[in-house]
Design a protein around this nucleic acid. Structure first.
Lengths: 207, 207
DNA sequence: CTTGGATTAGACTGTACAGTCTAATCAGCC
DNA sequence: GGCTGATTAGACTGTACAGTCTAATCCAAG
């Protein structure tokens, strides 16, 4: 998590942001400027040289964090299921990994005091993932690989399926369901999704 | 916010808990004992007559909140789809309604400081809903109304589908997808679920 | 009326913190 | 060397707050 010590004051700004992120993730907004400064190996005044206030530092941390949850859908040449499996596995790391979880905690808690920040974060982070996924799924529908439906809705549905209650569980510190490894869980979810969105070719269809 | 003035000191404990819940939902853990007391129409010392510390008051609020998110699956006599629709609609009120959202925000943020509380909340609230739903779905599987699978997994999957990214969206203050009313959204989700979990060979359970 | 438990306002303590200010120091660069 | 801008430690201010204490007051039940 922490970078090895670089030449002090190479770029204290980056180290500050990183240290602040860690501190906020551990302590929430309670993390004091002093502790953040110590963590960054920097004087308190230096913090204020870079950021006018704690709120500004926090906003900067959130901005960086938004980029950190992006998951691409790269993977030409492999089939739909394999691509979704890969996507799902990475997405779940982002959603229920320690770092993503901690960021989610503090951001969702503080958003009421930073409304604009909340929207911006959503838009550059989770919202962006939805857009990419919707785009991807829309193309798969056009290729006849998936049942036709509103891609945005389907993307959101798939994302929540992948989350599969595990984020809630982990947020409250409840143990994850004993069973089977991550990979298997992702596979079960994706297969369930593909069953629901199989192309309509076969005789019976509802709609 | 305030209930009509009851005979003062009828049961200041209940009024305190309610006031504290409102204050915590608005301000997070920042809500001060003083403001909570004012809100309850009570002296600060009275708060300490009932709860040894702010943390204890907070824990009590969380305990009450856990019970408030429960959703039953009552509804004998109507078919599976109708029951799920009803369940889904109520569940979504709990998940993405203002109150549930605010509680989720503060609880998930504070859980790291109250690990036992987090687990207890999960167990009496969300965890209980999962158990009920798993039980219900398990019975539907036995009745041949649903494809056979691990009921716990399916319950969790259905819950996350119902949440459908809307909680995340609302947590960050992003607008809900313009489209169609709640009822239609629930129906789309439930129908998608029923498609994925139609009995394997004889799909005969939609209205 | 009297008594006892709950309640009240308000003063008080100690702590944590954001943010400012200053004077000294360090770094690279001419 | 000497200049410049960033950095440093530490003192300082003002505020918010949890929690305690006290002395007065209310209220219900005997």
């Amino acid at each position: 998590m922490s970078l090895m010590t670089e030449p002090v004051s190479f770029d204290s700004r980056q180290r500050l942001i990183r240290a602040a992120a860690e501190a906020f993730m551990e302590e929430g907004y309670r993390a004091s400027i002093d502790r953040i400064a110590v963590r960054a190996g920097v004087a308190r005044q230096t913090v204020y040289n870079h950021f006018p206030s704690k709120d500004d530092l926090f906003s900067e941390v959130a901005r960086v964090a938004a980029g950190a949850i992006l998951v691409s859908l790269d993977g030409d040449g492999i089939d739909l299921r394999a691509r979704l499996l890969r996507f799902g596995a990475v997405l779940r790391q982002r959603l229920i990994g320690d770092e993503g979880l901690a960021m989610f905690r503090i951001l969702s808690a503080e958003v009421p005091r930073f409304p604009a920040l909340g929207v911006a974060y959503f838009d550059k982070g989770p919202g962006q993932v939805v857009r990419w996924l919707a785009d991807f799924l829309g193309r798969a529908m056009n290729d006849g690989l998936l049942r036709r439906d509103d891609p945005q809705f389907v993307a959101e549905l798939l994302l929540s399926m992948l989350e599969c209650f595990d984020r809630t569980r982990r947020l409250f510190g409840a143990p994850l369901p004993a069973a089977s490894g991550e990979a298997e869980r992702v596979a079960r979810i994706i297969d369930c999704f593909l069953r629901a969105y199989a192309p309509e070719h076969d005789p019976r269809n509802l709609s």
